[in-house]
Design a protein around this nucleic acid. Structure first.
Lengths: 207, 207, 207, 207
DNA sequence: CATGAATGAGGGTTCATTCAT
DNA sequence: TATGAATGAACCCTCATTCAT
């Protein structure tokens, strides 16, 4: 199951790609403002730059839009994480960079993260396995980074939980920054969180 | 702003209290199953044990129900945390108990936590200040517990961030347990998380 | 399966009866003009004298209206036939009266008959058994009348086919009168058809 | 008014003929399954083997397809009746053959007959005169057959009504066979109906 | 001549809310 | 206070038709 499995009446696949990108862009913009349920399909069509009829040439139901949006957001995060991991040198400093970049990405994607936290449950019901796999994949990337970057061996489970924590704390900044940024700048937040990670991994942290 | 500020046509305040408790119970049960948006006011009325007309004697809009539910859930968590902190002895062992109990509470309240994560954003728009304050209050309880329970001084901010992390990781177990419990039992999860907290706080952890 | 098995949100059964009669009356009037498919639920509501919301308090889907209409028309025909058969004297003259009255009923109910012929197929798919039974019931009434009214014995099958023919030729007058009444007055049509029936039944026909 | 009066953008008349035959074949197949209103033009195009754009090169509106189908079905019945009448010998035995063949044709064309009975009313509104003429033409063929085949003179009207009855009872078998074939085989049905016709015409019936 | 993407009016249905009883 | 019938705006989605390529 992936975005391509959403059926379209249109045959031209590159056009599908183009129109769906418009839909995703429009929908995200609207979902940010009012959430999925309060956004109408007509608004999505309009924001995407075409008519309601055309919208329904590229999707089957409103829920398809949600899935399209989920996939797009997920892809963006995954690609970023993946790119970060492709650096050659694998040192604790690399780990710092990865976590730092990830948090900053979450900062940029605050609204997107919020959308997901609000709606992932609805998706989950219909595409439990897909969504679950996507989430685990991202955590596993982080876990691998942790294992690769630290000099000493670590229990799988421990690495995975640290990865999970980092991952969710990233979301937390995105989702709860309205609480956090009364206390922290993004820089201070990242710095402190990285310190905690290093302590959890029993790594020395020299700056 | 609190639950009492929701207007009712009915004068008898103890009746209001009784009816609203019915509403909260009915609504939580329904929201767990289908979420706020997919639950109708008619269903809420029925589940609460009275007619749609009566429901509207005790609330003004459907959103009021959401707020009622939020307040009820929030109260339950807050009361629990507050009770935990009222123990006399304040040692690292107390901290372990507090965190452990909090995580187990979140485990019990998985569905409730999910409701909040799905809908808090809508609430936030209308009652930003109230909700923000509620969230901070809970974090501050944890923060106070941390400061009280550890033997050495700690920077305010650091304590607050640890509190935040613990708090959100509790949510995480509630909200994302469908991911986590493939890897961890609740016991293992709590154990490892507490270890991390102790490392972050530079406390020795003897079991 | 009967009209009562159509679900309503409203509890007051006598109100349901009243409103459904309004719906039936409104719907028949519209279906006569434009057929089932070209009539909108909004039009049905308006013609029935209430809002679209109210319409849907008394039915579940547009198809329910069709079934309501079918049942109402069927009832009317059945009641009439049944009443005709309750006359004491059972002679060939009674048979003449019955057939005559039935044809005149079909003449009055031209539009209703048309509705049924247009839409019974859609109903049939969903309620095949119900509709089939209703149709057979009406034919059986006629068959019984034939058997009772003629002085000599007759094979069951033959009686049933004659009944069927009379029944459908009644429809034919209703449904195809735009063809027939270029050639026949209703009186001449009935007279000739009755003659044929008598010949088929080998009865003398004195006027 | 006939099929040729339906306008087409295409000039090549033999191509028009070919394409329209494809349309008729596709449409009948679909109308049999789901009726006219529940069949979409897209489906008709697809079933016909070309694109929606091409479909609209050969028709102007969806109703045109209905008329095309009506004309095709009508033609087939008319041609059959016409062929039957071209036999030289004109005896009561010929009449038996004609009626028998006609009933068997209706048996084969059950679905087509159903389509017509469902939709002829919509057609009638727009092309009342055309359709009316077509129906009369078919009845008149039967009427002529009756007059030619019987040895004694008969009143025009009587002959026409018998023709009408035969005609409609043929439809009846097609349209209501779901009722009739619980009681009759096609052979028994035809046999009995022919007997009735002979009685109506006061002809002896030796087998 | 053939294609198929685009259109948008309009369809069936839902549901938060009101108000007379 | 409690009821539940009534309302109608608004929702999601379909589909006949057009027209640029």
């Amino acid at each position: 199951m992936n975005a391509h499995s959403i059926l379209s009446n249109v045959k031209d696949t590159s056009l599908i790609q183009k129109r769906r990108n418009q839909i995703i862009k429009g929908a995200i913009s609207l979902f940010k403002q009012k959430g999925f349920h309060r956004t109408t399909t007509r608004e999505i069509a309009k924001e995407s730059g075409f008519s309601i009829g055309t919208l329904y040439e590229y999707i089957r139901t409103k829920e398809d839009v949600l899935f399209l949006v989920y996939e797009a957001i997920n892809d963006r995060v995954y690609q970023k994480l993946y790119a970060l991991m492709s650096q050659e040198a694998q040192s604790t400093e690399t780990l710092v960079t990865i976590i730092d970049s990830y948090y900053r990405l979450m900062d940029e994607m605050q609204d997107e993260v919020t959308i997901l936290y609000q709606e992932v449950k609805s998706l989950e019901t219909k595409m439990r396995e897909t969504v679950l796999q996507r989430e685990r994949d991202k955590v596993l990337l982080l876990k691998k980074a942790i294992i690769n970057c630290i000099p000493h061996p670590i229990r799988e489970e421990e690495a995975e939980l640290v990865a999970n924590n980092v991952f969710v704390q990233g979301h937390m900044w995105g989702f709860r920054s309205w609480i956090l940024n009364k206390q922290f700048t993004i820089d201070a937040y990242i710095e402190t969180q990285i310190n905690f990670v290093f302590k959890a991994l029993e790594l020395p942290r020299e700056k």
